[in-house]
Design a protein around this nucleic acid. Structure first.
Lengths: 207, 207
DNA sequence: CCCTGTGAATATTTTCACAGCT
DNA sequence: AGCTGTGAAAATATTCACAGGG
């Protein structure tokens, strides 16, 4: 399967989300999508071509069929089991976030090292101690991990996940992680806020 | 002030975080930082040169002085007031997240349209109705907004913020936002998870 | 005519390679 | 000897521009 650049994947995900909001039997033209993302329409056409989405000249792209193709390439035609590491405020907020079930993502296990939390249940999923991480990953066929532990524990958790064979991590801890054999998406509140402060700092006062 | 590319800003933020974990009177060499991010050391040297951070040949970069320079360029030498829009689970988790206070970020106002939440206080900050958004922004000198409302409300909130003169938004709602005169960081759980599923889907089975 | 598909051109980002300082 | 600073080269990403299909 052809290599997709990170930027293209990102845009394809946005297209997918946008197309889901349209009527299935309608058509969408590349320049409309281009405006959503603020890029040239040729960029959209190239992205779509990468995943074999074909348009009709003079007409645009068929929404329903394009959605199916996108789902296929983005891995959204199947279920993905997730292990949530860290049952704090953020973990809880993510757990209760509704949006991702519709895309096939399901939190199938939760771990936390706080003995007061172990044994508690969130919607029938019980919170387990870190020792059970590997067993849970195997038993529940988990392929994705979400880390919401504090900074100082992030590295240890990552190593445990690595040993358990996890190759995809979404990390919310303020500690930059990477995986030799896999991918980590580091999402960090302070990084994002600092982006904003930098922009205000450098370009903020004009106009 | 010189233009900084988005990627450079991102890396500078990571350097900043990393340097904060080092002893102030120590030195750091570019190849060490390079390993953290998985890029070439020349990249680091170029990034640092962009913000006038100078190293000593054969020795590296002085940690303390580099930190100060980074703080200056990243806008971390002053306080930034934030308005949190949406007092749900995610809003609450972010509100209680400790890490960003140390960098000068402070949530100074909270709005929510749910009448049952209005008037409640989180650590002395009371939850206000959306009608007060503009007044709060003005009175508290707020320059950054964090959106944690549901998808269907995101656009409306953004427009209110825009009218109130906000130019920097961190958006957690699953609705892609952009600002004519400003910057939006769109952070979305399902987008990030889909990134991971895409990678597993395309490259997952090898090795 | 309107819009896709795509080579060619341009712009941007990253890496290479090495001169030069201490 | 060890590491910075930086032009030059290479790799990537994006836009331009237009041929061609319905």
């Amino acid at each position: 399967m052809k290599y997709l650049a990170e930027n293209s994947i990102y845009r394809l995900i946005i297209y997918h989300r946008y197309l889901r909001s349209l009527k299935k039997d309608s058509w969408i033209i590349s320049s409309k999508l281009a405006k959503v993302l603020g890029v040239e329409s040729s960029q959209i056409r190239k992205d779509l071509a990468l995943v074999r989405i074909k348009g009709l000249t003079g007409k645009g792209y068929p929404v329903e069929q394009s959605l199916r193709k996108l789902e296929h390439y983005l891995g959204l035609t199947r279920k993905w089991n997730i292990i949530l590491c860290g049952a704090g405020n953020l973990g809880k907020a993510l757990f209760h976030y509704k949006g991702f079930n519709a895309l096939g993502f399901r939190i199938a296990a939760i771990i936390d090292k706080d003995p007061r939390k172990i044994g508690l249940r969130w919607n029938k999923i019980s919170i387990s101690p870190p020792e059970q991480l590997e067993a849970l990953v195997k038993k529940q066929s988990i392929e994705i991990a979400v880390i919401t532990v504090p900074q100082e524990e992030a590295r240890g958790v990552k190593e445990k996940l690595e040993e358990a064979g996890i190759r995809s991590i979404l990390n919310f801890a303020p500690y930059y992680l990477s995986l030799k054999n896999g991918i980590v998406r580091n999402v960090e509140l302070t990084t994002e806020l600092t982006f904003l402060s930098t922009h205000l700092n450098l370009h903020g006062r004009k106009k």
